[in-house]
Amino acid sequence: MELLATQGISKIFTKRRGMFGETRTVALNDVNISINSKEIVGLVGASGSGKSTLARLLVFLYKPTSGKLLFEGNDITGYRSRQIRKYRQEVQMVFQDPYASLDPNHNVAWHVRRPLITSGYSGNIEERVDQVLEMVTLSPPEYFKNKYPHQLSGGQRQRVYLARALAVEPKILIADEPVSMLDVSVRIEILELISKLREELGISIIYITHDVNTVSLVTDRVYVMHSGMVVEHGNTDDVISNPTHKYTRELIEAAPNPYKRI
């Protein structure tokens, strides 16, 4: 079942320059993507290709210049504050930099508790916090709950963020380069955790990266983006083993082969 889709989405950033001048950046140009339930979809592309812009559009941090957003078949493009708030309980986002996405003044428990409170969770909140922390393999929860972000490693922080995002049981998780700021040794762990969560929770995941290797590791389908446009899409294995677009080939060739040394 198609859960979330964009129809001809474009995003143009305009910045005023001096009195009359204006600079326009076309960040997205007529993008069509869709994600089905329980699917992991990859978005690959070089820096500046518009991946983050697309991710932010999907959670209403930006408004599209033109095009439509569809959620469960309904046009949600014109959603306003209250509807957006409700929608965001279904679609959550994980940020790239776990050193910036957690509030340095609050501890782990706070970060996981707040979404439960704002969404009006009816069960025992502290139990749920423990449960979610266990889920992202931060155990024992008691050990982590009173820790502040600066007392945690990058991998642990990203797990805390996953717990925060997943606490309200969203249907879709958008992960914008969730491991690119992490140490190489913990990247695989986090990616495996994300795959495991997909299996256990039955959620859909949009995985954004510029690293072709990790895309083939975790995703079912992939969209290749280049300067604001989707240039190729299909099953991940097909696209990686048989790229049709010149840009995709370049991207694959440019990626370091992890097996080369062995």
Binding site: V59, R88, Q92, F95, A100, D103, S119, A165, V168
Partner: peptide, 9 residues
């Protein structure tokens, strides 16, 4: 971390 708070409602 502020954007995050907006996203979680």
């Amino acid at each position: 971390f502020i954007l995050s708070s907006l996203l979680i409602g």
